[in-house]
Design a protein around this nucleic acid. Structure first.
Length: 785
DNA sequence: ATCTTACCGATTTTT
DNA sequence: TCGGTAAGAT
């Protein structure tokens, strides 16, 4: 007969019998650090949610050393349960000091992941689940900061700036520092500042490590940027984490409070954490050591935005006594697809070895097809899509993946032409639309009168005759009087050097804001927003009989709907609360699932999704892997991981395509097939070359017997006409040197190459590792080497 | 102040 | 090729 401990274990194992051995191990291991290396499609979310549900219900019952001391009657009942399954009674007896919901913190990267986890958890654990903090890094930090940010010198009503707002601030800073946005592209500055913040580097620290003039200037910009943000009581997305770290560092009792509270912490997608996120988790978990991280180093594809893969690779070093569990059984794909994925990723050196397998059969072979150009590629894909549809696969189960968004256009054209329903993922999100952002900025200005960025945006929206010059005078006045711009606008009469008309316009705006602020006190968020639309004239502005106006106002209607929805849901609804939701939960109109259309998206955004059939397009050197990755081993490995992610999205069917010749950014490219294709074993892929010896548009026009127009298209050399007989003036006018086939050349961007073909003004130049590119010699920044 | 035309530059993206 | 932005016209 079993003892109490063994019986308890047996029962709990039975209760979680739907999980595999490794998954169960991960669920039951709740004390101490735990690293779960979850391969693609290995049931990671299931482990995460079941682990939480297990903790809430059973505590540490599986590993508990204390004898449960069951009575004879209990034992009889429980043993019966071993056969029949557990009932409520049995479950209650098994529990061993269950974890309380408020001791749990589960962190994800995206709102979508948080929502999914919360939903699944509620299904598993019911009511109790609502007490668990399931949130993104950013919203967890936001919550912490709303409580205590005053301790580090911000007001609790701080505003969150998105990247567009950031650019505005950076442009302002460039002016103050007298720097040109030509030399310091605002987007680059933003990336550099974000990079520094991600490394938890202050402006001073950046200045200290700055080796060159440029970086020193960037450090100055960073300092100015920080100062501006602080004045405006605003935080950017990085600040949500950074300021939380600062709060923890400067006020240990605050950290103490959360570290004590969150005895159990789970982090999803750990391979994507950056330094700030690592530290945040580390600080909270240092005391309890009950930290469970789940991730897959092979799916780390966000290194370029600060994700530090060594966080997951070094977890075992950081957390002594850590348990590591690998989930290698895949529940998504056929073995053929998994072997392809394993083969590709096996070429990476810095990784934890994993080998995916599945209980599904071998499945259909993957198919690689080489086409002539991107139009042919798109056409081929449409053909295959229709075939698959004919075989009964719904459109909604198919995805076309590409490396860059620019590739989607041609695909879309062909899909429309073929009458295939599709939806493109990516592009402008709801809260980034102009009309929405305008309204949101009015709301923001009402919530935080110091939000000068919002003011600049709305002060002349709709048009009320306040131009750039007026705004700059206002800003100057505000700067020297130490007021906010709104404050300055409210006593516009004081502002010097302004025409009477400008002053009048400014005070008009000031009065408008005064009215709005008064109404804000009296009305609920939804009513207030409606009022705002009237008073500002936004409603009137869009009240025109044009399609665009109507569409934009419809969006505003949706925004009103979102405010009303928020008002219904929130305990104490406020404009501030709504704005926080809008800033952090930007996916009101995310990808509509189950719409029965083919999905077009980048390989990056496909992470976490799955489809019956997947097309991985543009498999070309220079595109995938991209030019920048080819000479950089680390970047190349990240591209390879991206390839792995793309492949593992497929459940049943997998297609690779590429084109001999591709128009990219208006310039024709000739790329060799991607090296990732070479890494796929011959036995796993069926290869077909459908590329034509001539460019397809040429073939088409020939077939139609058309005359080729000379303007854009180049003439092919005709028989009897050699390049040497061409008028010299047409050859290399600007280049100043005569090029011939076989010449070594140096291109400003691509470096050393060799001319392989000359057609009039067009030279075909081969670059090692990059393939052949075509240049118009009259303009190409290229010289003889 | 606002509208129109010439340029430049260009992975990947969430919060 | 496309879109966003900067200088020029009205």
């Amino acid at each position: 007969m079993m003892d109490g401990i063994a019986l308890r274990r047996a029962l709990i194992e039975k209760e979680y019998g739907f999980l595999n051995e490794q998954q169960r191990q991960a669920v039951f291991q709740i004390e101490g650090p735990l690293l779960v290396l979850a391969g693609a499609g290995s049931g990671k979310t299931s482990v995460l949610t079941n682990r939480i549900a297990y903790m809430l219900r059973y505590g540490d019952a599986y590993h508990a050393k204390a004898d449960p001391c069951f009575s004879g009657e209990q034992i009889r009942h429980l043993e019966a349960c071993l056969e029949t399954g557990l009932d409520q009674q049995a479950r209650a007896w098994l529990a061993e000091s269950p974890v309380s919901p408020h001791e749990l913190l589960a962190i994800t990267f995206t709102n979508k992941a948080a929502r999914e986890m919360r939903e699944r958890l509620e299904r598993l654990a019911g009511e109790e689940a609502s007490g668990v903090w399931v949130s993104t890094f950013h919203s967890a930090c936001c919550r912490i900061l709303r409580r205590d940010i005053e301790k580090i010198g911000y007001s609790r009503s701080f505003t969150i700036y998105d990247d567009e707002d950031q650019l505005g601030v950076i442009k302002e800073c460039l002016k103050t520092l007298n720097l040109s946005d030509k030399d310091f592209a605002p987007r680059e500055i933003r990336a550099r500042i974000s990079g520094a913040k991600t490394l938890v580097q202050s402006p001073e620290e950046l200045m200290q490590v700055a080796g060159d003039f440029r970086t020193r200037k960037i450090a100055e910009l960073y300092a100015a940027y920080e100062e501006r943000l602080r004045k405006m009581n605003a935080l950017d997305f990085d600040d949500l984490l950074l300021k939380t770290l600062q709060l923890f560092a400067d006020h240990p009792p605050v950290l103490e409070h959360y570290a004590r509270r969150f005895r159990y912490i789970l982090v999803d997608e750990y391979q994507d954490t950056n330094r700030m996120q690592y530290l945040f988790v580390h600080l909270l978990a240092r005391r309890s050591q009950n930290l469970c991280v789940v991730g897959d180093d092979d799916q780390s594809i966000y290194g370029w935005r600060g994700a530090d893969i060594s966080n997951i690779l070094d977890f075992e070093k950081d957390y002594k006594g850590c348990q590591t569990i690998k989930l290698e059984q895949n529940y998504r794909s056929t073995n053929g697809i998994l072997s392809a994925a394993n083969a590709v990723i096996g070429n990476n050196l810095s990784r934890k070895k994993k080998e995916l397998w599945s209980a599904k059969g071998e499945g259909e072979k993957a198919k690689y097809t080489r086409l002539s150009d991107e139009m042919e590629e798109a056409g081929y894909i449409c053909g295959e899509i229709l075939t698959l549809r004919g075989q009964g696969l719904p459109f909604g189960e198919m995805a076309v993946l590409y490396r860059t968004n620019a590739q989607s256009r041609v695909l879309e054209e062909r899909l429309v032409f073929s009458g295939i329903p599709y939806s493109v993922y990516g592009g402008l999100r709801f809260y980034e639309r102009k009309e929405i952002k305008d309204v949101v900025c009015y709301l923001r200005l009402c919530a935080n009168p110091a939000d000068d960025v919002a003011l600049r945006r709305v002060i002349n929206e709709p048009r009320r005759g306040i131009g750039e010059a007026t705004v700059e005078s206002l800003a100057a006045y505000a700067r020297q009087s130490g007021e906010t711009m709104l404050g300055a606008a409210m006593d516009a009469e004081q502002v010097e050097g302004l025409a009477a008309r400008a002053k009048a316009a400014l005070s008009g705006f000031g009065q408008l804001m005064g009215q709005l602020l008064a109404h804000k006190e009296l009305l609920g968020p939804a009513e207030f927003t409606a009022k705002l639309l009237e008073l500002t004239g936004i409603r009137a502005q869009y009240d025109k009989d044009e399609d665009e106006s109507r569409a934009r106002f419809e969006n505003i209607g949706e925004l009103l709907g979102a405010v009303a929805e928020y008002e219904k849901m929130a305990e104490t609804p406020t404009i501030e609360g709504f704005l926080e939701e809008a800033a952090l939960v930007a996916d009101v109109d995310g990808l509509r699932e189950g719409t029965g259309s083919v999905t077009l998206m980048t390989m990056h955004s496909a992470k976490g999704l799955e489809f019956g059939a997947v097309f991985v397009t543009g498999m070309e050197e220079g595109l995938f892997p991209g030019t920048r990755a080819i000479f950089d081993e680390e970047k190349l490995e990240e591209e390879r991981r991206l390839c792995y992610v793309a492949i593992t999205r497929a459940k049943e069917r997998l297609f690779f395509t590429n084109a001999t010749r591709r128009m990219l950014y208006g310039a024709p490219q000739h790329n060799r097939p991607s090296r990732f294709l070479d890494e796929l074993p011959e036995t796993l892929v069926e290869r077909e070359d459908r590329s034509a010896p001539w460019p397809s548009e040429l073939r088409r026009s020939r077939a139609r017997g058309e005359e080729r127009e000379n303007k854009e298209r180049r003439e092919l050399p005709r028989a009897g006409e050699t390049p040497a007989l061409r008028k010299p003036s047409q050859v290399n006018m600007a280049a100043g040197a005569d090029f011939g086939v076989g010449d070594a050349v140096r291109h400003r961007r691509y470096g050393q190459g060799m001319v392989v073909k000359l057609q009039g003004d067009v030279a075909h130049v081969a670059f090692p590792g990059l393939g052949i590119k075509e240049f118009d010699l009259r303009f190409a920044p290229m010289e003889k080497a």
